[in-house]
Amino acid sequence: MANVAIGDLVIRKSHGGDIVFKVTDIFEDTVGQLHCVLKGMHLRLVADAPIVDLERVGAEHLRNEILHMESVHNDTLKRVMMRRSIERERVNLNRSESSKKYDYFDLPGRVLHLDGDEEYLNMCLKTYGQMNMQAVGRCIEESKQSEQVIELVDQYRPDILVLTGHDALIGGGKKDLRDINNYRNSKYFIESVKKARIFEPSRDDLVIFAGACQSYFEAILAAGSNFASAPTRIFIHAYDPVFIAEKVAFTPINRTVDLGDAITASVTGIEGVGGVETRGKFRLGLPKTPYGT
Rank of each mutant, 00 (worst) to 15 (best):
L9T: 08
V10N: 03
I11V: 15
R12N: 03
G17V: 10
T24S: 12
K39Y: 12
K39V: 09
K39A: 10
G40W: 13
M41H: 15
R44G: 01
R44A: 13
P50S: 10
V52P: 00
D53T: 07
D53M: 10
E55N: 07
H68T: 13
M69H: 14
E70T: 10
E70C: 10
S71V: 00
S71N: 01
S71Y: 01
V72D: 08
H73V: 00
H73Y: 10
N74T: 12
T76G: 01
V80W: 04
M81G: 00
M81N: 01
M82F: 02
R83C: 04
R84V: 02
E97S: 12
S99L: 12
L107W: 04
R110Q: 11
L112P: 03
Y120K: 02
Y120W: 06
M123L: 15
M123G: 06
C124A: 15
Y128P: 03
G129S: 13
M131I: 07
N132G: 06
Q134R: 06
Q134D: 08
K144Y: 02
Q145D: 00
Q145W: 00
S146T: 00
S146P: 00
S146R: 07
L152M: 01
V153W: 02
V153I: 14
D154T: 07
Y156F: 15
P158V: 04
D159S: 13
I160E: 01
H166N: 06
D167C: 09
L169R: 11
D176G: 03
D179A: 07
F189E: 00
F189V: 03
E191N: 09
K194T: 09
A196V: 02
F199V: 03
P201V: 06
S202T: 09
D204A: 00
D205K: 15
A210G: 05
A212R: 08
Q214E: 15
F217V: 06
I220W: 01
L221Y: 08
G224N: 04
T232C: 11
T232F: 11
T232A: 13
R233V: 07
F235C: 13
A238S: 14
F243H: 03
T251E: 11
N254T: 01
R255H: 11
T264R: 14
A265F: 12
A265G: 14
V267G: 02
E271A: 14
V276W: 12
E277R: 13
T278R: 07
K281T: 09
G285C: 05
G285K: 11
L286E: 05
Y291C: 01
G292P: 04
